[in-house]
Design a protein around this nucleic acid. Sequence first.
DNA 1: TAGGCCATCTGGTCCT
DNA 2: AGGACCAGATGGCCTA
Length: 355
Amino acid sequence: METCSSFVTFLVGDQYSFIFCLPSKVYYSLSNINFASPPTLPQEDMLTLPFDKPPSNQTSSPFKTSWATNQLVKSVKPEPGRALEESEREDEERDGEEEEEEEEVQEQSGGLTTRGSYKKKPNHARLDRVRLRRIEANARERNRMHGLNNALDSLRKVVPCYSKTQKLSKIETLRLAKNYIWTLSEILRTGKRPDLLTFVQTLCKGLSQPTTNLVASCLQLNGRSFMSEPGGESFSLYPAYHHHHGPEVVGSSTADSGRPLRPFGSFSGPYEALYDSPSPDCSSSLDSGALSPPLNFNGIFSLKHEEPVGYRSCHYGLRYCSISQRSSADLGPYDIHLRGQFYPVQDKLNKPFHN
DNA sequence: TAGGCCATCTGGTCCT
DNA sequence: AGGACCAGATGGCCTA
């Protein structure tokens, strides 16, 4: 028996219309059904639903009910149908009646009615509206979270380590992205390409062991080589996690899509990647599955404060923000303050785009 | 089986 | 009033 995930009834007179969803299908009836008798639905729509006891809203796996609930909301909202409108009218009428009733009760008791001594009749239509609003709010919340997840997916694609088969977790994606941004800003600030070891170490700060190994595979490094690094950080790269668990890493020799190695695998400096990147305004670069992180300096580093008009309008203009006056040695990737500032390297980076 | 991660529900708060 | 946002709770799935 499938479990009902959402159930809404609409009171129309002394009968109910109902709408509810199962993991596999949405059922609704805008014709009135007397709950005292079993529903007579077409065989294909027949349900083993205990009508004497309306099912709970939370009795089934939420994962499987997303579509169904959305369908439910669609079914109810744009075409609420007669039942809803009528129930609302009824509701208003009943509200009026109830108020009158209440006044009557108070009059009869000589105004001695104490708060709470009068029990309102259950107003089904009102409850239905509350339930419906809750269902709609749930749907909005789901969509909102889906949007957030889509954004995270986009972020996964532009951080140095992207695997379709072993996605980075949300938190790891954010951490890696933060480290990546910090690393790139350092590259711009110093104008020097870091050695691979430093690059990876910075990138992996604060990441979990599996993610660290994933990054290592992305960069085609042997994790062991980091473990004996003198004066190394507390983190280390652990060996060959991916050999056993087989994350198909874009950029590794087992790249899932046969796409070319990402520039970071043979890290050749930021400039190459920059020159290869498409126009920052070309949003399709993400959708088209571009593998090189689009070093969108306008997008990544631009802050909310003032921005030179010339650069704002130039797709390829490099807006360079760097670490503020503090020494970079003081700064870990967890304490970063970017400030809009131009450095000579910016001219170098911009040169090809200002012909 | 415990722990991590995730999707969803839910009620509260803030904003328009 | 209604929507966006947020955080806590809950339960499912997966892996070590």
